[in-house]
């Protein structure tokens, strides 16, 4: 028994090495979201900007929109922030979920770097994040007018990613019309 145990570190290393090797050589397809084509999970959380006002999933309905999960501790969020501001200026509706963050810092951040969000949900405990299946910040979802999740992107939004998201949003807008 002990002899077999001694092989455990080697096996773990081989597993890790295999994964790294695959990572070097293969580009697998996208991460499927378990929530895809499901309604946005129910929640009741405070708004970041007006802490006394409670928000629910109903507040996100009405038109196709982006839902962006962000936090001040996440450097990649800062990277994508400028691009989100541009999108907001082009008239794209973006809802923010402030994920496991300190509200004070988050408000200061929006003041400092401008606020692209129509609404920001304060998810301090990460409970909504769990329901959504958030891997880490940033993540961006496309929802339709009925609040159904149509697309999920893990990572920063930039011009290339936006092309993809825009396609989905245009389809939704077309379908609604």
């Amino acid at each position: 028994m002990r002899r077999i145990l001694l092989f455990v570190p080697l096996l773990i290393f081989i597993g890790l090495g295999y994964f790294l090797w695959r990572g070097l050589s293969i580009d697998p397809t996208e991460l499927p979201s378990a929530r895809l084509n499901q309604p946005f999970p129910q929640f009741q959380l405070a708004s970041l900007t007006e802490p006394e006002r409670m928000m629910t999933e109903a507040d996100l309905k009405g038109r196709p929109a982006l839902v962006n999960v962000w936090a001040t501790w996440c450097p990649t969020c800062k990277e994508e922030h400028t691009f989100l501001n541009q999108l907001a200026q082009q008239g794209v509706t973006i809802y923010g979920i402030n994920y496991k963050d300190e509200p004070l810092k988050a408000r200061e951040w929006l003041k400092r770097y401008l606020d692209p969000y129509a609404e920001v949900v304060l998810d301090q405990e990460g409970s909504l994040g769990i329901d959504l299946g958030v891997y880490g910040a940033p993540e961006t979802y496309v929802i339709d007018a009925q609040g159904v999740i149509r697309y999920r992107h893990v990572g920063a939004v930039d011009a290339t990613v936006w092309k993809q998201l825009k396609q989905v949003m245009d389809q939704l807008a077309g379908g609604d019309a």
């Binding site: 996208e30 996440c74 891997y135 940033p138």
Partner: peptide, 20 residues
């Protein structure tokens, strides 16, 4: 440390596993 790297390596995008 490796988790975001693996996610990135598998082309699933960039994420930060942050200080929290």
């Amino acid at each position: 440390t490796l988790y975001p790297l693996l996610v990135d390596a598998l082309n699933l995008g960039k994420i930060s596993v942050g200080p929290p």
